[in-house]
Amino acid sequence: MAKPIAKLRYDEISEGDEGPTVSHELTRSDLVAYAGVSGDMNPMHTDEVSAKAAGLPSVFGHGMFSMGLLARALTDWAGVGNLTEYRVRFTKQTWPGEVLTTRIVVTGKEQTEDGKRIRVEVGLANQDGESKLAGSATIVAC
């Protein structure tokens, strides 16, 4: 029976602590690759001609690519398999050329019947600080 190894030590984490950030410049190749691995073939993400015909400045990013990028920042820090909840609001579209940076801030911790848990607020923003995702997650700690 799988038992993912938790990386965060409950006693060493305090409210206000921040997790490491991940930065990534979004490219059109990312959008094509994500369309392929997810099966989301909406042309607004991959076909510049269609996107411009629809009145958009260019193709734009899949919200679920952004959520996946932010998930990577969480699991890099907490260890794969150590999320119990993860939710986001998609606040703005993402565009090729933007540099997206993740943010993880500890908002609380608690000892539950199921074990030690750390609550975090999470976000993703571009180089100008414009929010793309805002959400929260719960992490298993040891």
Binding site: M1, A2, K3, P4, I5, V37, S38, G39, D40, M64, M67, G68, A71, R72, L74, T75, G79, V80, G81, L83, Y86
Partner: peptide
């Protein structure tokens, strides 16, 4: 080594 029986899926994989 990370505690799984086999390769796990990333957190947002089920959506796809």
């Amino acid at each position: 080594e990370a505690g799984f029986d086999s390769i796990p899926a990333p957190p947002t994989f089920t959506f796809a």
